[in-house]
Nucleic acid binder design. Structure first.
Lengths: 259, 259
DNA sequence: TTAAAAATGTTATTATTTTAACATTATTAA
DNA sequence: TTAATAATGTTAAAATAATAACATTTTTAA
Protein backbone atom coordinates (compact mmCIF):
# COMPACT_ATOMS: atom_id res chain seq x y z
CA UNK A 1 0.00 0.00 0.00
CA UNK A 2 1.35 3.33 -1.04
CA UNK A 3 1.50 6.16 1.44
CA UNK A 4 -0.72 9.17 0.90
CA UNK A 5 2.26 11.11 -0.25
CA UNK A 6 3.35 8.51 -2.78
CA UNK A 7 -0.18 8.42 -4.14
CA UNK A 8 -0.07 12.18 -4.54
CA UNK A 9 3.26 11.98 -6.29
CA UNK A 10 1.84 9.50 -8.78
CA UNK A 11 -1.19 11.70 -9.27
CA UNK A 12 0.99 14.74 -9.87
CA UNK A 13 2.90 12.87 -12.56
CA UNK A 14 -0.39 11.78 -14.12
CA UNK A 15 -1.69 15.32 -14.11
CA UNK A 16 1.53 16.47 -15.71
CA UNK A 17 1.18 13.87 -18.40
CA UNK A 18 -2.21 15.36 -19.17
CA UNK A 19 -1.10 18.96 -19.15
CA UNK A 20 2.50 19.92 -18.95
CA UNK A 21 3.55 22.13 -17.27
CA UNK A 22 1.16 22.90 -14.48
CA UNK A 23 1.10 25.24 -11.53
CA UNK A 24 1.43 24.73 -7.80
CA UNK A 25 -1.92 26.42 -7.37
CA UNK A 26 -3.65 24.14 -9.82
CA UNK A 27 -2.26 21.02 -8.19
CA UNK A 28 -3.09 22.36 -4.77
CA UNK A 29 -6.71 23.13 -5.62
CA UNK A 30 -7.36 19.96 -7.61
CA UNK A 31 -5.85 17.68 -4.99
CA UNK A 32 -7.22 19.61 -2.04
CA UNK A 33 -4.01 19.99 -0.13
CA UNK A 34 -2.09 23.08 0.82
CA UNK A 35 0.41 24.60 -1.52
CA UNK A 36 3.15 23.75 0.93
CA UNK A 37 2.34 20.09 0.63
CA UNK A 38 2.47 20.36 -3.11
CA UNK A 39 5.78 22.18 -2.88
CA UNK A 40 7.22 19.46 -0.70
CA UNK A 41 5.95 16.84 -3.13
CA UNK A 42 7.51 18.67 -5.99
CA UNK A 43 10.82 18.88 -4.16
CA UNK A 44 10.75 15.11 -3.85
CA UNK A 45 9.90 14.63 -7.52
CA UNK A 46 12.70 16.98 -8.38
CA UNK A 47 15.13 14.98 -6.25
CA UNK A 48 14.05 11.90 -8.14
CA UNK A 49 14.81 13.75 -11.34
CA UNK A 50 11.29 13.43 -12.64
CA UNK A 51 10.35 17.09 -12.88
CA UNK A 52 11.78 20.56 -13.12
CA UNK A 53 10.45 23.30 -10.90
CA UNK A 54 10.16 26.91 -11.97
CA UNK A 55 8.62 29.98 -10.45
CA UNK A 56 4.97 29.12 -10.28
CA UNK A 57 4.91 25.55 -11.39
CA UNK A 58 6.39 22.27 -12.54
CA UNK A 59 7.26 20.64 -15.81
CA UNK A 60 7.61 16.95 -16.42
CA UNK A 61 11.11 15.93 -17.40
CA UNK A 62 11.40 13.80 -20.47
CA UNK A 63 14.38 11.82 -19.41
CA UNK A 64 15.03 10.07 -22.68
CA UNK A 65 14.28 13.11 -24.74
CA UNK A 66 17.91 13.89 -25.37
CA UNK A 67 18.86 10.42 -26.47
CA UNK A 68 15.77 9.81 -28.54
CA UNK A 69 15.88 13.04 -30.43
CA UNK A 70 19.60 13.46 -30.86
CA UNK A 71 21.46 10.18 -30.92
CA UNK A 72 24.46 11.88 -32.48
CA UNK A 73 25.03 14.32 -29.69
CA UNK A 74 27.95 14.22 -27.34
CA UNK A 75 27.29 12.36 -24.13
CA UNK A 76 27.97 15.32 -21.95
CA UNK A 77 29.78 14.33 -18.80
CA UNK A 78 28.96 17.62 -17.19
CA UNK A 79 25.41 18.76 -17.65
CA UNK A 80 25.88 21.23 -14.83
CA UNK A 81 26.57 24.13 -17.14
CA UNK A 82 24.02 23.26 -19.81
CA UNK A 83 21.84 26.30 -19.34
CA UNK A 84 24.87 28.57 -19.35
CA UNK A 85 26.09 26.90 -22.53
CA UNK A 86 22.74 27.42 -24.20
CA UNK A 87 22.68 31.05 -23.19
CA UNK A 88 26.24 31.59 -24.35
CA UNK A 89 25.35 29.97 -27.66
CA UNK A 90 22.28 32.15 -28.07
CA UNK A 91 24.32 35.27 -27.42
CA UNK A 92 26.95 34.20 -29.91
CA UNK A 93 24.32 33.58 -32.58
CA UNK A 94 23.54 37.28 -32.52
CA UNK A 95 27.02 37.90 -33.95
CA UNK A 96 26.14 36.19 -37.19
CA UNK A 97 25.21 38.54 -39.97
CA UNK A 98 23.97 38.26 -43.52
CA UNK A 99 26.55 36.93 -46.00
CA UNK A 100 28.88 35.90 -43.19
CA UNK A 101 31.19 32.97 -43.62
CA UNK A 102 31.43 31.43 -40.19
CA UNK A 103 33.55 28.54 -39.04
CA UNK A 104 32.53 26.65 -35.95
CA UNK A 105 34.51 24.48 -33.59
CA UNK A 106 33.85 21.31 -31.61
CA UNK A 107 32.08 20.80 -28.31
CA UNK A 108 28.69 20.95 -26.69
CA UNK A 109 28.53 24.73 -26.50
CA UNK A 110 29.23 24.95 -30.20
CA UNK A 111 26.57 22.34 -30.87
CA UNK A 112 24.09 24.58 -29.08
CA UNK A 113 25.43 27.44 -31.17
CA UNK A 114 24.80 25.49 -34.36
CA UNK A 115 21.27 24.89 -33.17
CA UNK A 116 20.83 28.62 -32.57
CA UNK A 117 21.94 29.80 -35.99
CA UNK A 118 19.59 32.24 -37.76
CA UNK A 119 17.33 30.81 -40.42
CA UNK A 120 16.48 33.94 -42.31
CA UNK A 121 19.80 35.37 -43.53
CA UNK A 122 22.10 33.87 -46.14
CA UNK A 123 25.28 32.50 -44.55
CA UNK A 124 28.07 30.07 -45.20
CA UNK A 125 28.93 27.66 -42.44
CA UNK A 126 32.17 25.73 -42.21
CA UNK A 127 31.93 22.97 -39.65
CA UNK A 128 33.78 19.75 -38.97
CA UNK A 129 31.82 17.87 -36.31
CA UNK A 130 28.95 15.50 -36.90
CA UNK A 131 26.78 16.86 -34.11
CA UNK A 132 26.91 20.38 -35.47
CA UNK A 133 26.58 19.20 -39.06
CA UNK A 134 23.30 17.50 -38.26
CA UNK A 135 21.77 20.82 -37.31
CA UNK A 136 23.55 22.97 -39.85
CA UNK A 137 22.49 20.67 -42.67
CA UNK A 138 18.86 21.48 -41.92
CA UNK A 139 19.33 25.17 -42.57
CA UNK A 140 17.79 26.25 -45.83
CA UNK A 141 19.69 29.53 -45.75
CA UNK A 142 23.20 28.13 -45.42
CA UNK A 143 25.93 27.00 -47.75
CA UNK A 144 27.79 24.28 -45.94
CA UNK A 145 31.45 23.41 -46.21
CA UNK A 146 32.62 20.37 -44.32
CA UNK A 147 36.39 19.87 -44.24
CA UNK A 148 36.50 16.15 -43.80
CA UNK A 149 39.09 13.70 -42.64
CA UNK A 150 39.44 11.08 -39.94
CA UNK A 151 36.62 10.59 -37.47
CA UNK A 152 37.16 10.95 -33.73
CA UNK A 153 34.35 9.37 -31.81
CA UNK A 154 34.77 11.21 -28.52
CA UNK A 155 34.33 14.65 -30.04
CA UNK A 156 32.50 13.61 -33.24
CA UNK A 157 35.14 15.65 -35.07
CA UNK A 158 36.77 15.07 -38.45
CA UNK A 159 40.26 16.32 -39.25
CA UNK A 160 42.95 15.86 -41.89
CA UNK A 161 45.58 17.75 -43.83
CA UNK A 162 43.14 18.03 -46.72
CA UNK A 163 40.47 19.39 -44.44
CA UNK A 164 42.90 22.03 -43.21
CA UNK A 165 43.44 23.08 -46.82
CA UNK A 166 39.71 23.56 -47.27
CA UNK A 167 39.66 25.74 -44.18
CA UNK A 168 42.64 27.76 -45.34
CA UNK A 169 41.09 28.37 -48.73
CA UNK A 170 37.83 29.68 -47.24
CA UNK A 171 38.73 32.50 -44.87
CA UNK A 172 35.87 33.03 -42.47
CA UNK A 173 34.50 36.35 -41.35
CA UNK A 174 34.08 34.96 -37.85
CA UNK A 175 35.33 31.88 -36.05
CA UNK A 176 33.33 30.56 -33.12
CA UNK A 177 35.70 28.62 -30.96
CA UNK A 178 35.42 26.69 -27.74
CA UNK A 179 38.00 25.53 -25.23
CA UNK A 180 38.27 23.24 -22.24
CA UNK A 181 40.71 25.45 -20.37
CA UNK A 182 41.22 29.19 -20.10
CA UNK A 183 44.13 30.50 -18.07
CA UNK A 184 45.47 34.04 -17.91
CA UNK A 185 49.15 33.14 -17.71
CA UNK A 186 49.21 29.90 -19.69
CA UNK A 187 46.61 30.54 -22.38
CA UNK A 188 43.65 28.77 -23.95
CA UNK A 189 43.72 24.98 -24.24
CA UNK A 190 41.76 21.97 -25.46
CA UNK A 191 41.73 18.30 -24.48
CA UNK A 192 42.79 16.58 -27.69
CA UNK A 193 46.00 16.95 -29.59
CA UNK A 194 44.27 16.30 -32.89
CA UNK A 195 42.25 19.48 -32.47
CA UNK A 196 45.35 21.66 -32.52
CA UNK A 197 45.92 22.09 -36.27
CA UNK A 198 42.28 22.79 -37.01
CA UNK A 199 41.92 25.24 -34.17
CA UNK A 200 45.05 27.21 -34.97
CA UNK A 201 44.14 27.30 -38.65
CA UNK A 202 40.71 28.69 -37.81
CA UNK A 203 42.36 31.33 -35.66
CA UNK A 204 44.76 32.26 -38.45
CA UNK A 205 42.24 32.61 -41.24
CA UNK A 206 39.22 34.09 -39.51
CA UNK A 207 38.78 37.82 -39.44
CA UNK A 208 37.13 37.85 -36.03
CA UNK A 209 37.62 35.27 -33.29
CA UNK A 210 34.90 34.63 -30.75
CA UNK A 211 35.59 32.37 -27.78
CA UNK A 212 32.62 30.57 -26.20
CA UNK A 213 33.40 29.09 -22.80
CA UNK A 214 31.32 28.67 -19.71
CA UNK A 215 32.82 29.80 -16.41
CA UNK A 216 33.69 26.28 -15.28
CA UNK A 217 36.60 26.30 -17.75
CA UNK A 218 38.40 29.25 -16.22
CA UNK A 219 41.79 28.90 -14.55
CA UNK A 220 41.99 25.40 -16.01
CA UNK A 221 44.73 24.15 -18.31
CA UNK A 222 44.20 21.11 -20.53
CA UNK A 223 46.86 19.21 -22.40
CA UNK A 224 46.93 21.13 -25.67
CA UNK A 225 47.52 24.87 -25.69
CA UNK A 226 46.30 26.50 -28.88
CA UNK A 227 45.98 30.26 -28.32
CA UNK A 228 46.51 33.24 -26.05
CA UNK A 229 43.42 34.85 -24.63
CA UNK A 230 44.44 38.07 -26.38
CA UNK A 231 44.12 36.31 -29.73
CA UNK A 232 40.36 36.55 -29.36
CA UNK A 233 38.26 39.57 -30.21
CA UNK A 234 35.24 38.53 -28.23
CA UNK A 235 34.79 36.35 -25.17
CA UNK A 236 31.32 35.08 -24.33
CA UNK A 237 30.83 33.39 -20.98
CA UNK A 238 28.58 33.45 -17.95
CA UNK A 239 28.67 35.61 -14.87
CA UNK A 240 30.54 32.98 -12.87
CA UNK A 241 33.96 33.89 -14.29
CA UNK A 242 36.69 35.16 -11.92
CA UNK A 243 37.02 38.93 -11.57
CA UNK A 244 40.60 39.07 -12.85
CA UNK A 245 39.40 37.93 -16.27
CA UNK A 246 37.00 40.85 -16.46
CA UNK A 247 39.83 43.26 -15.74
CA UNK A 248 42.07 41.44 -18.20
CA UNK A 249 39.55 41.71 -20.99
CA UNK A 250 39.05 45.39 -20.28
CA UNK A 251 42.75 46.22 -20.31
CA UNK A 252 43.46 44.04 -23.35
CA UNK A 253 40.59 45.21 -25.52
CA UNK A 254 38.70 41.94 -25.57
CA UNK A 255 34.97 42.41 -25.84
CA UNK A 256 33.52 40.53 -22.89
CA UNK A 257 29.92 39.34 -22.92
CA UNK A 258 28.47 37.57 -19.90
CA UNK A 259 25.10 35.86 -19.83
CA UNK B 1 13.36 40.97 -44.70
CA UNK B 2 11.86 40.13 -41.37
CA UNK B 3 11.19 42.87 -38.84
CA UNK B 4 13.19 42.93 -35.65
CA UNK B 5 10.21 41.65 -33.79
CA UNK B 6 9.64 38.74 -36.14
CA UNK B 7 13.29 37.82 -35.81
CA UNK B 8 12.92 37.84 -32.06
CA UNK B 9 9.86 35.65 -32.27
CA UNK B 10 11.80 33.13 -34.32
CA UNK B 11 14.63 33.27 -31.86
CA UNK B 12 12.31 32.75 -28.92
CA UNK B 13 10.93 29.65 -30.58
CA UNK B 14 14.47 28.43 -31.15
CA UNK B 15 15.43 28.98 -27.56
CA UNK B 16 12.33 27.12 -26.52
CA UNK B 17 13.29 24.25 -28.76
CA UNK B 18 16.57 24.11 -26.84
CA UNK B 19 15.05 24.32 -23.39
CA UNK B 20 11.37 24.17 -22.75
CA UNK B 21 9.90 25.90 -20.83
CA UNK B 22 11.90 29.02 -20.26
CA UNK B 23 11.41 32.19 -18.29
CA UNK B 24 10.73 35.76 -19.28
CA UNK B 25 13.85 36.75 -17.40
CA UNK B 26 16.05 34.31 -19.25
CA UNK B 27 14.74 35.40 -22.64
CA UNK B 28 15.08 39.01 -21.69
CA UNK B 29 18.69 38.68 -20.54
CA UNK B 30 19.83 36.50 -23.40
CA UNK B 31 18.21 38.61 -26.08
CA UNK B 32 19.09 41.88 -24.45
CA UNK B 33 15.67 43.44 -24.56
CA UNK B 34 13.41 44.52 -21.75
CA UNK B 35 11.07 42.06 -20.13
CA UNK B 36 8.16 44.10 -21.45
CA UNK B 37 9.31 43.49 -25.01
CA UNK B 38 9.55 39.81 -24.28
CA UNK B 39 6.08 39.85 -22.72
CA UNK B 40 4.66 41.55 -25.77
CA UNK B 41 6.43 39.02 -28.00
CA UNK B 42 5.04 36.19 -25.94
CA UNK B 43 1.54 37.64 -26.20
CA UNK B 44 1.91 37.54 -29.97
CA UNK B 45 3.20 33.98 -29.96
CA UNK B 46 0.31 33.05 -27.73
CA UNK B 47 -2.15 34.64 -30.13
CA UNK B 48 -0.60 32.59 -32.90
CA UNK B 49 -1.14 29.52 -30.78
CA UNK B 50 2.53 28.62 -30.66
CA UNK B 51 3.16 28.89 -26.94
CA UNK B 52 1.46 28.85 -23.59
CA UNK B 53 2.26 31.50 -21.02
CA UNK B 54 2.35 30.88 -17.29
CA UNK B 55 3.41 32.92 -14.33
CA UNK B 56 7.09 33.44 -14.92
CA UNK B 57 7.59 31.95 -18.30
CA UNK B 58 6.54 30.28 -21.52
CA UNK B 59 6.21 26.78 -22.81
CA UNK B 60 6.32 25.74 -26.42
CA UNK B 61 3.14 24.08 -27.59
CA UNK B 62 4.04 20.70 -28.94
CA UNK B 63 1.76 21.02 -31.91
CA UNK B 64 3.90 23.89 -33.06
CA UNK B 65 4.50 24.29 -36.74
CA UNK B 66 8.15 25.19 -36.26
CA UNK B 67 9.03 21.63 -35.56
CA UNK B 68 11.07 20.57 -38.49
CA UNK B 69 11.25 17.17 -40.03
CA UNK B 70 14.49 15.28 -39.86
CA UNK B 71 15.71 15.51 -43.40
CA UNK B 72 18.69 13.22 -43.04
CA UNK B 73 17.24 10.65 -45.31
CA UNK B 74 16.70 11.19 -48.95
CA UNK B 75 13.12 11.85 -49.88
CA UNK B 76 12.86 8.87 -52.10
CA UNK B 77 10.88 9.67 -55.17
CA UNK B 78 10.42 6.04 -55.95
CA UNK B 79 9.57 3.95 -52.94
CA UNK B 80 8.39 1.21 -55.24
CA UNK B 81 11.76 -0.44 -55.32
CA UNK B 82 12.52 -0.04 -51.62
CA UNK B 83 12.39 -3.73 -50.80
CA UNK B 84 14.60 -4.54 -53.76
CA UNK B 85 17.04 -1.89 -52.64
CA UNK B 86 17.18 -3.31 -49.15
CA UNK B 87 17.79 -6.80 -50.51
CA UNK B 88 20.48 -5.57 -52.86
CA UNK B 89 22.13 -3.75 -49.97
CA UNK B 90 22.05 -6.83 -47.76
CA UNK B 91 23.63 -8.96 -50.48
CA UNK B 92 26.34 -6.38 -51.00
CA UNK B 93 27.12 -6.29 -47.28
CA UNK B 94 28.21 -9.93 -47.53
CA UNK B 95 31.11 -8.74 -49.70
CA UNK B 96 32.67 -6.85 -46.82
CA UNK B 97 35.48 -8.70 -45.06
CA UNK B 98 37.67 -8.09 -42.05
CA UNK B 99 40.27 -5.34 -42.49
CA UNK B 100 38.58 -4.14 -45.66
CA UNK B 101 38.75 -0.50 -46.64
CA UNK B 102 35.48 0.17 -48.36
CA UNK B 103 34.32 3.33 -50.05
CA UNK B 104 30.62 3.91 -50.49
CA UNK B 105 28.69 6.12 -52.87
CA UNK B 106 25.55 8.26 -52.73
CA UNK B 107 21.90 7.29 -52.99
CA UNK B 108 19.19 5.45 -51.17
CA UNK B 109 20.45 1.95 -52.00
CA UNK B 110 23.83 2.85 -50.59
CA UNK B 111 22.16 4.25 -47.48
CA UNK B 112 20.54 0.86 -46.98
CA UNK B 113 23.95 -0.69 -47.55
CA UNK B 114 25.48 1.53 -44.85
CA UNK B 115 22.75 0.37 -42.51
CA UNK B 116 23.56 -3.25 -43.35
CA UNK B 117 27.28 -3.10 -42.63
CA UNK B 118 28.66 -5.79 -40.31
CA UNK B 119 29.28 -4.78 -36.72
CA UNK B 120 31.70 -7.46 -35.67
CA UNK B 121 34.69 -7.20 -38.00
CA UNK B 122 37.20 -4.35 -38.10
CA UNK B 123 36.75 -2.25 -41.23
CA UNK B 124 37.51 1.18 -42.59
CA UNK B 125 34.69 3.03 -44.27
CA UNK B 126 35.15 5.98 -46.56
CA UNK B 127 31.88 7.75 -47.17
CA UNK B 128 30.85 11.21 -48.29
CA UNK B 129 27.11 11.54 -47.75
CA UNK B 130 25.39 12.66 -44.60
CA UNK B 131 22.72 9.97 -44.68
CA UNK B 132 25.27 7.17 -44.81
CA UNK B 133 27.55 8.89 -42.31
CA UNK B 134 24.79 8.95 -39.75
CA UNK B 135 24.67 5.15 -39.77
CA UNK B 136 28.36 4.51 -40.27
CA UNK B 137 29.27 6.79 -37.38
CA UNK B 138 27.39 4.48 -35.03
CA UNK B 139 29.58 1.50 -35.87
CA UNK B 140 32.00 0.67 -33.09
CA UNK B 141 34.09 -1.50 -35.39
CA UNK B 142 34.79 1.03 -38.10
CA UNK B 143 37.40 3.65 -38.75
CA UNK B 144 35.68 6.39 -40.65
CA UNK B 145 37.14 8.66 -43.26
CA UNK B 146 34.91 11.38 -44.60
CA UNK B 147 36.31 13.30 -47.55
CA UNK B 148 34.53 16.59 -47.04
CA UNK B 149 33.76 19.56 -49.21
CA UNK B 150 30.70 21.43 -50.38
CA UNK B 151 27.28 20.21 -49.34
CA UNK B 152 24.63 19.27 -51.91
CA UNK B 153 21.23 19.16 -50.35
CA UNK B 154 19.48 16.95 -52.89
CA UNK B 155 21.88 14.03 -52.48
CA UNK B 156 23.24 14.94 -49.02
CA UNK B 157 26.68 14.58 -50.62
CA UNK B 158 29.89 16.48 -49.98
CA UNK B 159 32.57 16.94 -52.62
CA UNK B 160 35.70 18.99 -53.24
CA UNK B 161 39.18 18.80 -54.71
CA UNK B 162 40.56 18.21 -51.22
CA UNK B 163 38.06 15.43 -50.63
CA UNK B 164 39.19 13.77 -53.84
CA UNK B 165 42.77 13.84 -52.56
CA UNK B 166 41.69 12.03 -49.42
CA UNK B 167 40.03 9.39 -51.55
CA UNK B 168 43.09 9.03 -53.76
CA UNK B 169 45.38 8.63 -50.79
CA UNK B 170 43.27 5.85 -49.27
CA UNK B 171 42.87 3.17 -51.93
CA UNK B 172 39.89 1.04 -51.07
CA UNK B 173 39.71 -2.72 -51.31
CA UNK B 174 36.13 -2.42 -52.57
CA UNK B 175 34.00 0.43 -53.88
CA UNK B 176 30.22 0.15 -53.55
CA UNK B 177 28.73 2.34 -56.22
CA UNK B 178 25.23 3.24 -57.31
CA UNK B 179 23.84 4.76 -60.49
CA UNK B 180 20.64 6.25 -61.79
CA UNK B 181 21.05 4.91 -65.30
CA UNK B 182 22.52 1.70 -66.73
CA UNK B 183 22.67 1.27 -70.48
CA UNK B 184 24.49 -1.37 -72.48
CA UNK B 185 25.56 0.88 -75.33
CA UNK B 186 25.96 4.22 -73.55
CA UNK B 187 27.25 3.18 -70.15
CA UNK B 188 26.53 3.91 -66.50
CA UNK B 189 25.29 7.37 -65.53
CA UNK B 190 24.27 9.54 -62.59
CA UNK B 191 22.00 12.57 -62.25
CA UNK B 192 24.39 15.21 -60.99
CA UNK B 193 27.48 16.59 -62.62
CA UNK B 194 29.16 17.18 -59.28
CA UNK B 195 29.19 13.46 -58.59
CA UNK B 196 31.46 12.77 -61.56
CA UNK B 197 34.90 13.42 -60.08
CA UNK B 198 34.19 11.52 -56.89
CA UNK B 199 32.70 8.56 -58.72
CA UNK B 200 35.50 8.24 -61.26
CA UNK B 201 38.12 8.58 -58.53
CA UNK B 202 36.50 5.78 -56.55
CA UNK B 203 36.53 3.64 -59.66
CA UNK B 204 40.20 4.39 -60.26
CA UNK B 205 41.52 3.69 -56.79
CA UNK B 206 39.39 0.77 -55.65
CA UNK B 207 40.62 -2.73 -56.16
CA UNK B 208 37.15 -4.18 -56.69
CA UNK B 209 34.12 -2.29 -58.01
CA UNK B 210 30.59 -3.35 -57.05
CA UNK B 211 27.58 -1.73 -58.71
CA UNK B 212 24.31 -1.67 -56.76
CA UNK B 213 21.29 -0.80 -58.92
CA UNK B 214 17.71 -1.94 -58.83
CA UNK B 215 16.14 -3.06 -62.09
CA UNK B 216 14.19 0.19 -62.61
CA UNK B 217 17.45 1.90 -63.62
CA UNK B 218 18.17 -0.36 -66.57
CA UNK B 219 18.17 0.99 -70.12
CA UNK B 220 18.04 4.49 -68.71
CA UNK B 221 20.58 7.22 -69.36
CA UNK B 222 20.97 10.18 -67.01
CA UNK B 223 22.89 13.35 -67.72
CA UNK B 224 26.35 12.39 -66.44
CA UNK B 225 28.11 9.30 -67.75
CA UNK B 226 30.81 8.07 -65.41
CA UNK B 227 31.68 4.48 -66.35
CA UNK B 228 31.26 1.52 -68.67
CA UNK B 229 29.40 -1.47 -67.34
CA UNK B 230 32.55 -3.52 -67.93
CA UNK B 231 34.45 -1.36 -65.45
CA UNK B 232 32.61 -3.19 -62.67
CA UNK B 233 33.60 -6.50 -61.18
CA UNK B 234 30.25 -7.23 -59.59
CA UNK B 235 26.70 -6.14 -60.39
CA UNK B 236 24.03 -6.61 -57.77
CA UNK B 237 20.41 -6.05 -58.82
CA UNK B 238 17.02 -7.68 -58.69
CA UNK B 239 15.40 -10.24 -60.97
CA UNK B 240 13.55 -7.56 -62.92
CA UNK B 241 16.51 -6.69 -65.15
CA UNK B 242 16.29 -7.23 -68.93
CA UNK B 243 17.67 -10.52 -70.25
CA UNK B 244 20.31 -8.93 -72.45
CA UNK B 245 22.10 -7.64 -69.33
CA UNK B 246 22.41 -11.16 -67.99
CA UNK B 247 24.01 -12.32 -71.21
CA UNK B 248 26.24 -9.27 -71.27
CA UNK B 249 27.52 -9.92 -67.76
CA UNK B 250 28.21 -13.55 -68.60
CA UNK B 251 30.14 -12.77 -71.76
CA UNK B 252 32.06 -9.89 -70.19
CA UNK B 253 33.09 -11.60 -66.95
CA UNK B 254 30.96 -9.46 -64.65
CA UNK B 255 29.76 -11.34 -61.58
CA UNK B 256 25.98 -10.89 -61.55
CA UNK B 257 23.97 -11.29 -58.38
CA UNK B 258 20.18 -11.01 -58.47
CA UNK B 259 18.01 -10.87 -55.37
C1' DT C 1 -3.53 3.51 23.75
C1' DT C 2 0.04 6.81 23.78
C1' DA C 3 4.24 9.23 22.93
C1' DA C 4 7.21 10.19 19.22
C1' DA C 5 7.81 11.09 14.62
C1' DA C 6 6.28 12.41 10.32
C1' DA C 7 3.29 14.80 7.45
C1' DT C 8 0.47 18.58 6.57
C1' DG C 9 -1.45 23.23 7.37
C1' DT C 10 -1.23 28.26 8.60
C1' DT C 11 0.65 32.52 8.53
C1' DA C 12 3.64 36.36 7.93
C1' DT C 13 7.60 37.82 5.52
C1' DT C 14 10.32 38.03 1.52
C1' DA C 15 11.10 37.60 -3.31
C1' DT C 16 9.53 37.61 -7.88
C1' DT C 17 6.47 38.59 -11.54
C1' DT C 18 2.74 41.23 -13.75
C1' DT C 19 0.42 45.25 -15.01
C1' DA C 20 -0.20 49.80 -16.40
C1' DA C 21 1.10 54.32 -17.39
C1' DC C 22 4.19 57.00 -19.43
C1' DA C 23 9.03 58.07 -21.52
C1' DT C 24 12.15 57.14 -24.95
C1' DT C 25 13.75 55.35 -29.19
C1' DA C 26 13.26 53.50 -33.76
C1' DT C 27 10.66 53.16 -37.98
C1' DT C 28 7.72 54.70 -41.57
C1' DA C 29 5.71 57.53 -44.98
C1' DA C 30 5.03 62.08 -46.79
C1' DT D 1 14.37 65.60 -44.09
C1' DT D 2 10.25 65.86 -40.74
C1' DA D 3 6.09 64.54 -38.44
C1' DA D 4 3.51 60.67 -37.33
C1' DT D 5 3.43 56.19 -35.83
C1' DA D 6 5.00 52.10 -33.99
C1' DA D 7 8.11 49.71 -31.09
C1' DT D 8 10.63 49.41 -27.07
C1' DG D 9 12.17 50.86 -22.40
C1' DT D 10 11.44 52.47 -17.54
C1' DT D 11 9.30 52.70 -13.41
C1' DA D 12 6.33 52.03 -9.54
C1' DA D 13 2.39 49.84 -7.75
C1' DA D 14 -0.28 45.56 -7.56
C1' DA D 15 -0.51 40.69 -7.83
C1' DT D 16 1.32 36.38 -7.21
C1' DA D 17 4.61 32.98 -5.60
C1' DA D 18 8.36 31.24 -2.44
C1' DT D 19 10.21 30.68 2.00
C1' DA D 20 10.54 29.94 6.79
C1' DA D 21 8.90 29.31 11.22
C1' DC D 22 5.75 27.35 13.85
C1' DA D 23 0.96 25.02 14.72
C1' DT D 24 -1.84 21.23 13.91
C1' DT D 25 -3.04 16.79 12.37
C1' DT D 26 -1.97 12.16 11.07
C1' DT D 27 0.75 8.13 11.21
C1' DT D 28 3.81 4.92 13.38
C1' DA D 29 5.50 1.84 16.64
C1' DA D 30 6.12 0.59 21.40
Amino acid sequence: MLSKQEKRLKRIIKMLQLSNPTTVNNLSSVMDVSHMTIRRDLDLLKERNLVDIFHGGVILKDNNKWKRQHPYSLSYANKQMNQEKKNIAAKAAAFVESEDIIIIDTGSTIEYFARSLPECIPITVICFTLNSLIYVSKLKNANIIFPGGYFHENTLMFESKEGIKLITSHPATTAFISASGVNLEIGVSCSNKYEFKTKTEMMKTADRKVLLVDSSKFNKVENTLFAELTDFDVLISDTGIPDEYMDYCKTHGIELILV
